[in-house]
Computed example of a mutant assay.
Amino acid sequence: MNSTVKPRRKPSQSRAWMTSTAIQDAFLLLLLEKGYEKTSMRDIANVAGVSVGSVYQYFPGKEAIAAMTVRTWVRKLSTALSQAVEGITRTGKGRTVDEVTRLLVEVQVNTMLEGGAYWRALSSIERRVSPQAVYNRLYQDNVDLFRQALTSAADWPDGLDDARVAFSAYTIVDSLVKQALLVKAALPSAETMLGDVSLALDGYVRAVRRTGAVPP
């Protein structure tokens, strides 16, 4: 990982975790209020209620704080998806593909819209501050969760390239939600977003199941 985005130290005690969290929360508030370019390390320290020196003990610079904050929020989404997938797989082969895809869409849409303004701000800088390897790993973690959920469905057909289908399925959901947050002036309603994303994902998955293979 690039040294400019790698934290200086990993907090191992509760007080240290609280300080790191306070710094990330302060950065996020300032990102909304002032934007990335106008936010300084001193601003972050003031809002977090710590000294500038304390901030530098944990992070070498603003980009490192931004990268860690993005990772923290992406992991929140992964945790929500993981809990949903655990619930799906715990019931065995009882759910249909349509039920599984609906649940996956609901979890991702509701999680991201709940923190809509924050997700919008973080999505706008995500590729700028996230090292490619870290971005790829976190993305693939969520793809793997989609794969696990989809293949657990009672009517999931054999013979599909599950990894490829899961990648496309997650990309459809993630891209539609993120682009809506980034581009639209007003945050979309959950009902509208759920409807649009479900239509797109259902169309893709049904086409794949009907043909029995992902088109080349």
Results as ranks from 00 to 15, higher is better:
residue 49 G to C: 09
residue 86 E to G: 14
residue 149 A to K: 01
residue 58 Y to T: 12
residue 67 A to H: 07
residue 137 R to I: 02
residue 115 G to L: 11
residue 196 D to N: 05
residue 215 P to N: 10
residue 50 V to M: 10
residue 43 D to I: 10
residue 194 L to V: 01
residue 127 R to L: 08
residue 194 L to A: 06
residue 56 Y to I: 09
residue 197 V to R: 02
residue 75 R to G: 06
residue 18 M to C: 02
residue 6 K to Q: 13
residue 110 N to F: 01
residue 190 A to H: 03
residue 103 L to A: 11
residue 19 T to G: 07
residue 51 S to M: 11
residue 194 L to T: 08
residue 160 L to Q: 03
residue 68 M to C: 13
residue 7 P to L: 10
residue 191 E to D: 14
residue 63 E to W: 09
residue 102 R to E: 14
residue 173 V to A: 07
residue 171 T to D: 05
residue 2 N to W: 08
residue 104 L to V: 05
residue 212 G to N: 07
residue 169 A to K: 00
residue 1 M to L: 12
residue 27 F to L: 11
residue 13 Q to M: 08
residue 13 Q to P: 00
residue 50 V to S: 10
residue 168 S to V: 05
residue 145 L to D: 01
residue 47 V to H: 09
residue 147 R to V: 00
residue 121 A to S: 12
residue 180 A to C: 10
residue 184 K to T: 09
residue 60 P to L: 13
residue 157 P to M: 04
residue 115 G to M: 09
residue 66 A to K: 10
residue 96 T to I: 04
residue 106 E to R: 13
residue 137 R to C: 01
residue 201 L to H: 01
residue 130 S to E: 01
residue 92 G to K: 11
residue 205 V to L: 11
residue 26 A to S: 14
residue 158 D to S: 14
residue 205 V to R: 04
residue 101 T to W: 05
residue 142 N to V: 00
residue 214 V to N: 06
residue 200 A to I: 04
residue 115 G to N: 14
residue 87 G to Q: 12
residue 59 F to D: 06
residue 89 T to E: 13
residue 145 L to V: 02
residue 34 K to T: 09
residue 172 I to T: 07
residue 170 Y to V: 00
residue 206 R to K: 13
residue 74 V to N: 10
residue 17 W to V: 15
residue 171 T to L: 03
residue 133 A to K: 14
residue 9 R to T: 09
residue 207 A to S: 11
residue 192 T to C: 00
residue 208 V to T: 06
residue 123 S to D: 07
residue 49 G to F: 05
residue 89 T to S: 13
residue 140 Q to Y: 01
residue 75 R to F: 01
residue 39 T to S: 09
residue 206 R to F: 00
residue 89 T to Y: 02
residue 203 G to K: 05
residue 125 I to N: 04
residue 119 W to R: 14
residue 7 P to D: 06
residue 78 S to A: 15
residue 109 V to H: 07
residue 127 R to T: 08
residue 188 P to F: 04
residue 80 A to E: 13
residue 37 E to Q: 12
residue 103 L to H: 07
residue 53 G to T: 13
residue 160 L to E: 02
residue 9 R to W: 04
residue 185 A to D: 14
residue 11 P to S: 09
residue 65 I to Y: 04
residue 51 S to Y: 07
residue 120 R to T: 06
residue 78 S to T: 15
residue 26 A to G: 12
residue 84 A to C: 14
residue 150 L to M: 12
residue 215 P to I: 03
residue 172 I to C: 03
residue 142 N to L: 03
residue 210 R to S: 12
residue 89 T to W: 03
residue 53 G to D: 12
residue 90 R to K: 13
residue 45 A to W: 05
residue 39 T to K: 11
residue 162 D to N: 11
residue 152 S to T: 09
residue 177 V to N: 01
residue 95 R to L: 13
residue 200 A to Q: 06
residue 92 G to S: 05
residue 52 V to E: 14
residue 10 K to C: 05
residue 215 P to R: 10
residue 177 V to L: 08
residue 191 E to K: 15
residue 93 K to G: 13
residue 190 A to W: 02
residue 151 T to R: 15
residue 149 A to I: 05
residue 83 Q to N: 12
residue 126 E to G: 06
residue 70 V to T: 10
residue 105 V to H: 08
residue 13 Q to V: 11
residue 37 E to P: 03
residue 81 L to E: 04
residue 85 V to F: 01
residue 131 P to F: 06
residue 174 D to L: 02
residue 163 A to Y: 00
residue 161 D to R: 07
